[in-house]
């Protein structure tokens, strides 16, 4: 339950972190809060030769409004996002979801981009990124690219990030007039990984539901003119499309039932709070 030996780069700038990634030949891991990666290291599920600590890179520790999105730097912590003054008004889905994300003791240290990099299929921040159609900014010594959530999130703990790339920022789109949002999840204990998490966005005649913890990555679907009469049928079809499998926490059948029940609940809530 201890990490194996590794060389440690304590980067002081983004350029230093990118150089260390480039020089490592593919066996380096970035960390800032370490709330996902250090646990993986202790369990020896991750065993990089080089660890690159970006927690002291002040230029990556920021939250800023860029157009119609909030841009969150790689070193910004979850508690900083939770205490961002505009959160409830401009990002109501994150405002509802973050209290479910770990515990305050892990949010004190954990980062937003770290959670996205880890990409656990039941984790809240990747689900919100997929549901809100946010994007991530990847940078390497070769250049920078911006990927949509759909292009970035590839599968079970798998993203499109190349070995030499750093997620320098994530961007979550702000609420638009007329939109309503709702989030809920079922977990064994508050703050644990969700067995199933659901997030809904309702706007005019469009309804969007994101589901985490069932498929191998957070998955969202849109409906137009979804009426109450065919909601159950549509949710059932979506639950089966997501697949899902049995594990020690729940059966696939139970997860499908959660998609149907929780899905209806958040869609109704999101429609009711459109403003």
């Amino acid at each position: 339950m201890k990490p194996r030996k590794f060389d440690l780069v304590r980067a002081e700038s983004t350029a230093e972190a990118l150089a260390a990634l480039s020089e490592s030949g593919g066996n380096a891991k970035i960390f800032a809060g370490g709330q996902s990666l250090m646990a993986m290291m202790n369990l020896r599920l991750a065993d990089p030769d080089v660890m690159v600590d970006i927690s002291q890179v002040t230029e990556l520790s920021y939250l800023k409004e860029v157009g119609d999105k909030l841009e969150i730097g790689a070193a910004a912590t979850q508690v900083e996002l939770l205490s961002w003054p505009g959160l409830a008004e401009k990002l109501p889905l994150l405002h509802q979801a973050i209290p479910h994300l770990g515990h305050f003791q892990t949010r004190n240290r954990g980062t937003i981009c770290g959670s996205l990099a880890h990409s656990d299929p039941s984790s809240e921040l990747p689900l919100c990124l997929a549901t809100l159609e946010g994007e991530v900014v990847l940078r390497s010594v070769r250049g920078e690219r911006v990927l949509s959530a759909a292009d970035f999130q590839l599968g079970m703990m798998t993203t499109a990030r190349e070995d030499d790339e750093l997620i320098v920022a994530a961007r979550y789109p702000f609420k638009k007039p007329g939109e309503g949002f709702a989030f809920t999840e079922v977990a064994q204990r508050r703050g644990d990984f969700a067995i199933t998490a659901v997030a809904a966005v309702a706007s005019g005649d469009v309804t969007r539901l994101g589901v985490g913890g069932v498929a191998d990555k957070p998955t969202a679907k849109n409906w137009t003119n979804l009426s109450d009469d065919n909601l159950d049928e549509e949710l059932n079809a979506f639950a089966w499309e997501l697949g899902g499998s049995d594990d020690i926490h729940a059966t696939a059948k139970y997860r499908r039932e959660l998609v149907r029940r929780l899905g209806r609940r958040v869609i109704e809530e999101a429609k009711a709070c459109r403003s």
Binding site: M1, K2, G33, G34, Q35, M38, A39, N42, L43, V79, H103, F104, Q105, T106, N108, R109
Partner: peptide, 21 residues
């Protein structure tokens, strides 16, 4: 030793955090 149990929680710069992570 993987951040779940909370026994190792200490304060770093006044904020409660997992010392095992």
């Amino acid at each position: 030793e993987h951040g779940v149990c909370g026994a190792c929680t200490v304060q770093i710069d006044g904020k409660a955090q997992r010392s095992c992570l």
